[in-house]
């Protein structure tokens, strides 16, 4: 086995244990963002037990959490940031807004559902979902992420 192959295998094995999370706000009301922040920052819900960490740059991310109904105004920015996330990536739609539009469904400024523009892998319905539900969704995303590596 060549050194390159060895490093590649080892990094893949290690990466499967610690996916990094990036959060995109696609015009959310901030409710789901608060719950996402709660999931990560408050020791009570501590998502880092699953090996996840929130990161500040889309280029470092493995799992993308998208909140909000994808308003017309942020659509281009969201798609640009999403394209910067390296493959393979797993997308989690947090809250009912990115899944179906929720309360903003069929609004003139809302382009929901998100899956028309971005391949979504896991849905976490709720308005807003409770932190445990987000952890449940992230746990499912990690399973998908391990298969994709």
């Amino acid at each position: 086995m060549s050194l390159k192959q060895f490093i590649s295998d080892q990094s893949r094995r290690m990466a499967a244990r610690s996916p990094w999370i990036y959060r995109i706000n696609a015009g959310s009301c901030n409710g789901c963002d608060v719950e996402c922040a709660t999931t990560a920052l408050i020791p009570r819900y501590d998502v880092e037990r699953l090996g996840c960490q929130y990161c500040g740059s889309p280029r470092h991310a493995d799992i993308v959490l998208v909140t909000g109904p994808l308003t017309a105004r942020v659509k281009d920015s969201v798609l640009r940031v999403f394209d910067e996330v390296p493959d393979p990536k797993v997308t989690v739609a947090v809250g009912v807004c990115p899944i179906s539009g929720g309360i903003f469904r069929d609004g003139y400024a809302v382009l929901a559902p998100l899956s028309k523009y971005i391949p979504v892998d896991v849905n976490v319905p709720g308005c807003a979902p409770r932190p445990q539900a987000i952890i449940e969704g992230i746990a499912q995303a990690i399973e998908i992420w391990r298969q994709r590596l």
Binding site: V122, N123, V124, P129, R130, A133, E136
Partner: peptide, 11 residues
Amino acid sequence: DWHMAHPVKDE
């Protein structure tokens, strides 16, 4: 019941 997170294939 709040266990509603699901993969997209079950949507």
